[in-house]
Amino acid sequence: MATSVGTTPGGTTPAGMTPAGTTPESENGAEFREHERILSPDFLSVAQITEMLAEDADGVQRKLEKFLNLKNLHTCLKEAILLDYYVSGFLWARGMDFSIIQYSKFMTLLDMLLHNLRTLHMSLEESLKWLGEVMAEIGPSYSQRNEEWNIFDIKQANAIVDYLKVSLFQHYKLYEFLFYSTREEIVIGSEQVIEVVKSVGHPFPDPLEEGMAFDIYSTFVEPPPTLDMEMKGLHQEQGSEESHPDASISETDPLVGFTIEDIKSVLGQVIDDILIGIQTEINEKLQIQEEAFNARIEKLKKA
């Protein structure tokens, strides 16, 4: 009669038989330890998950921003996308009414999928295969022996796969572009060079007086008055005082003592003299032109 066998890492062992040196209890312990390594260590601790469960959507975002140590959220597109990825996943899990351990494993699953994409450069097919293997370990099992290890039931496992399909796998190329493609860093700003005022003894010329306030110019830029300048100022003041009598004399009206008729007669004589000179000049020019025309006419007659 043929005996059925099962494949083991050490060779073939008849099914239902225990290898030498092992017991069913030791096999169960090894399988339990192997199961404990699935999705470990946890992405979020129990305390962190408990804190976020007491927050609304904005509070969850603030908590995850703190837990993930995202410092450049408002200027880095990559950090903003990662935060949205984890916040959306946590809020979706809240709608599924998960337990604390289910929250922990689900968030760790989200993180491991991104880790495989970012670090191991897994393709979409490889990520789907890896997800299937993980869900086979933490999802529903048909073996009665591992029933107590099941973290998600069939309905929850299907919901998780559907969520990952629309959240990550449907946009897998975009996440690949996020991690693999280099982006230009655009610096928004401008630089201005400001030249400060040089000292008085500097070889460069001083700033113009028109370019600054008078009090600043007179205090910091204008050289102090010298003795020669003070003496010139005194001479100018004395000269202005001596010129005051002449100015008072010159200020008298030169037309004092003349009547309007006298002024009109003087102006009439001046105008007549000017007009006579102009008329004489015009007559001379007309006479010259007349003689020139007569000479031309005589030439035409002779011709």
Rank of each mutant, 00 (worst) to 15 (best):
S143W: 10
T108Q: 02
L114E: 00
S127T: 08
D153Y: 08
D97E: 11
E147S: 15
E126K: 07
F98H: 07
N116D: 09
E137W: 05
M107D: 01
L109Q: 00
L120Y: 14
S143A: 15
M135H: 05
S123L: 10
W149E: 02
M107K: 03
G139T: 05
V161Q: 00
Q144H: 12
H115W: 06
D111M: 08
L131A: 00
Q170G: 13
E137L: 12
S104D: 03
A136K: 14
M122T: 07
G139I: 06
K105I: 11
N116V: 12
K155P: 10
A157L: 04
K105D: 04
K129I: 13
V134L: 03
D162A: 13
D111F: 09
R118N: 10
P140F: 04
E133N: 07
S99N: 09
L131I: 04
D97H: 12
F169K: 01
M96A: 05
D162L: 10
P140V: 11
I100F: 02
L164Y: 03
D162H: 12
N146E: 09
R145N: 11
L117H: 14
S104E: 03
D111K: 14
L113I: 13
N150W: 09
H115A: 12
S127R: 05
N158A: 13
F152A: 03
L113V: 13
I154Q: 05
E126M: 07
Y103E: 01
M135A: 07
L124E: 01
L128F: 06
E148S: 15
Y103F: 06
L114C: 10
I101C: 11
I151W: 01
Q156C: 05
F169H: 01
L113E: 03
L117N: 13
Q156K: 08
L164H: 04
A157W: 02
K165A: 12
L113Q: 06
I160W: 00
Q170I: 13
L114F: 05
E148T: 15
T108M: 03
E147Y: 15
Y142L: 11
H121G: 10
E125D: 07
S99V: 10
F152E: 01
H115Q: 08
L109D: 00
R145K: 13
L128E: 00
I154H: 04
E137F: 06
I154T: 09
L120G: 10
M96S: 04
A157N: 05
Y103H: 03
F152C: 02
A157P: 05
S167I: 06
L109R: 02
V134F: 00
V134E: 01
A136R: 11
L168R: 04
M112R: 11
L124G: 04
F106D: 00
Q144D: 13
W130I: 07
Q170S: 15
L124H: 04
N150E: 12
Q170M: 15
K105M: 10
I154A: 05
L168Q: 02
L117E: 08
N158T: 11
H115P: 07
L117C: 14
E125H: 09
S167E: 02
S104T: 11
R118K: 13
R118I: 09
Y163T: 14
